[in-house]
């Protein structure tokens, strides 16, 4: 399966990192989550309702929508905060750069004793570069720039997602766990993981790692 990879390059103040990344990731996850599936037999299912909430940002003049799921919010927040703290604390490169990715993948069953293979089908990456405002006017200009950029990204996200490319087919009951994360009680997002890289280069995806491992094995 081909994977679609979308990267956004954005510069922002350190305190805006959490909200910029959360705006993008939650917008994607809102589109990529459905209500809980209830299978009536192997092929038939009904889907429960998804609720959504508005989130007002504190450090940018922006409101985004996300699924009403405490568990999802907690997990996304934890990963983004971890990335943000490390990025803001880094003293290596100047200005600090880092990228964080939201990767959707599906599992492929493997024969024992191997683990199921994770094949990514869509990766959203936000490459962040931290900037510092020289004065208040500069801060105001940069702030407006971040908001405008976010608006453009949100429109782009909706455009991409409505193309319905690369998305896994609706699974039968026995394969539901290979496509969806069924551990949430209130929603059912496609399987995803968040990972980051602080060197500035896009992080290596799970799928790429697997492929690299296979290539390395074959070249031996």
């Amino acid at each position: 399966m081909n994977a679609r990879s979308i990267a956004f390059e954005m510069s922002m103040e350190g305190r805006q990192v959490d909200e910029v990344v959360a705006s993008i990731f939650h917008t994607v996850l809102f589109h990529r989550s459905s209500g809980k599936f209830t299978y009536t037999n192997e092929e038939s299912y009904s889907i429960r309702t998804v609720s959504y909430v508005d989130v007002d940002c504190d450090f940018i003049d922006f409101t985004y929508v996300c699924c009403e799921s405490e568990a999802l919010g907690r997990i996304v927040k934890r990963d983004i905060s971890d990335f943000s703290e490390r990025l803001r604390g880094s003293d290596g490169s100047s200005p600090p750069r880092g990228s964080i990715s939201l990767e959707f993948f599906q599992k492929r069953r493997a024969r024992w004793p191997f683990q199921p293979e994770c094949v990514p089908w869509e990766v959203w990456t936000v490459c962040c570069e931290l900037t510092e405002a020289r004065n208040e006017q500069d801060m105001h200009t940069k702030h407006e720039g971040v908001v405008e950029m976010l608006q453009d990204k949100i429109v782009f996200i909706t455009e991409i997602i409505n193309r319905h490319e690369y998305v896994p087919k609706m699974p039968s009951r026995s394969d539901a766990d290979l496509i969806f994360d069924t551990t949430y009680s209130d929603i059912q997002p496609y399987l995803f993981k968040i990972h980051y890289n602080l060197s500035g280069a896009p992080p290596t995806s799970v799928g790429n790692t697997v492929r690299k491992l296979i290539r390395d094995t074959l070249s031996l």
Binding site: T27, F30, H31, S34, Y52, D54, D61, F62, T63, Y64, V65, L150, Q151, I154, V155, I157, T158, I161, N162, H164, M170
Partner: peptide
Amino acid sequence: YFRMGILLKSLITITRITPAYHLSR
């Protein structure tokens, strides 16, 4: 039907980014 649901999600998302949203708040 499923894709119409996604289209509505896009609509929900876009309604929050135009100036009228901030004004209405």
